[in-house]
């Protein structure tokens, strides 16, 4: 197959079907820049992180870079901040996933249930928050919605005669979950709505003629059809939610205490505010391990689906 003659037009004309691995060289040559860059992008920083995590390395005390083994990991994991950081990360990822998948399925089912006036506009309005940059949505919620004096929620609370709540001070993690869900629910709606449109209408009609109610159709027909898109939503959102940063940075700065600190923010404070590179690197590696466990599980779940579609 790899004989040079294959490349001549005459040879091709005589074997029109055999276009499999012909001209291997350009193929390999064209993929390699992307692969090489991504490989460097992964290996060099990760290698440095591994190295830094094993030495004492604080930017405030230059020159004291002894090898300390796993001491950094020990300090990081036994620090009180780690437990709340890990807990908050799980809570944040879990809650936002739950909110966006459940509400996403319900809202997109509602939109696909029937034709109604202005459906296109409703679609556009629903997916809009996804395109708002994270720092804007965080400040928007902080100043205009959650603010205890002049926020919208304070006004609603007052209207019903209740005492306004200082959301970010008293329920910091809940508030951040709200903000992040507001950003990611539209993503779920966008994907699930598109997936629902590809559902076979005739099948639905047949089920209806057989006497299936709307709930039965939703449960036995729509939901199974959505299994793969839901898996996609879960995977993509998990990737981004594990490293939520800007929303915390611009609203609560992780506080009060560590109440709204997730792992990403904790590592940031170790590295760039306390200059403890060693500890931060150890934390970074732990974050990588957690992300990879999630990734392996998720890729196992849907990786096959992603490439086997043709």
């Amino acid at each position: 197959m790899n004989s040079p003659a294959i490349d001549t037009p005459a040879a091709q004309a005589s074997t029109p079907v055999a276009h499999k691995p012909r001209r291997l060289a350009p193929g390999w040559f064209l993929v390699s820049p992307s692969v090489a860059l991504l490989l460097i992008w992964m290996i060099v920083p990760l290698g440095m992180t591994v190295y830094f995590s094993l030495i004492r390395y604080n930017l405030l005390y230059p020159g004291e870079n002894d090898f300390v083994g796993l001491e950094n990991f020990e300090y990081f994991v036994t620090d009180a901040a780690f437990l709340s950081g890990a807990g908050n990360t799980l809570l944040l990822v879990g809650s936002v996933l739950l909110i966006s998948v459940v509400l996403g399925v319900l809202i997109s089912a509602l939109l696909e249930a029937s034709e109604f006036f202005g459906r296109g506009i409703v679609r556009v309005l629903l997916i809009s928050p996804f395109f708002i940059m994270p720092t804007v949505s965080a400040l928007l919620w902080k100043n205009l919605i959650f603010h205890p004096v002049s926020g919208i929620l304070a006004a609603i609370w007052q209207f019903f005669g209740a005492q306004p709540v200082d959301w970010l001070a008293h329920h910091p993690l809940f508030s951040i979950i709200m903000i992040v869900s507001w950003q990611w629910l539209p993503f779920a709606i966008l994907i699930l709505m598109t997936a629902m449109q590809s559902l076979d209408q005739e099948q639905k009609e047949a089920a209806r003629l057989d006497g299936a109610g709307p709930i039965a159709i939703f449960w036995h027909l729509t939901l199974p059809h959505l299994a793969r898109p839901i898996a996609v939503v879960v995977m993509i959102e998990t990737i981004f939610l594990l490293s939520v940063f800007a929303e915390i940075y611009t609203t609560t700065s992780g506080g009060p205490g560590y109440e709204s600190t997730n792992l990403a923010y904790l590592i940031y404070t170790q590295a760039l505010l306390q200059f403890d590179v060693g500890m931060a690197s150890a934390g970074g590696l732990i974050a990588v391990v957690i992300a990879n466990i999630a990734a392996i599980v998720l890729i196992r779940m849907i990786g096959k689906n992603l490439t086997d579609k043709q």
């Binding site: 991504l38 992008w41 992964m42 060099v44 920083p45 990760l46 440095m48 992180t49 830094f52 990737i239 594990l242 490293s243 940063f245 792992l263 990403a264 590592i267 940031y268 590295a271 760039l272 590179v277 931060a280 690197s281 934390g283 970074g284 590696l285 974050a287 990588v288 992300a291 990879n292 999630a294 990734a295 890729i299 992603l306």
Partner: peptide, 14 residues
């Protein structure tokens, strides 16, 4: 795709 799984904080310091 799996390189996207590397959380940015993991390589923030380097």
């Amino acid at each position: 795709l799996s390189t996207k799984m590397l959380p940015p904080v993991g390589v923030l310091v380097p």
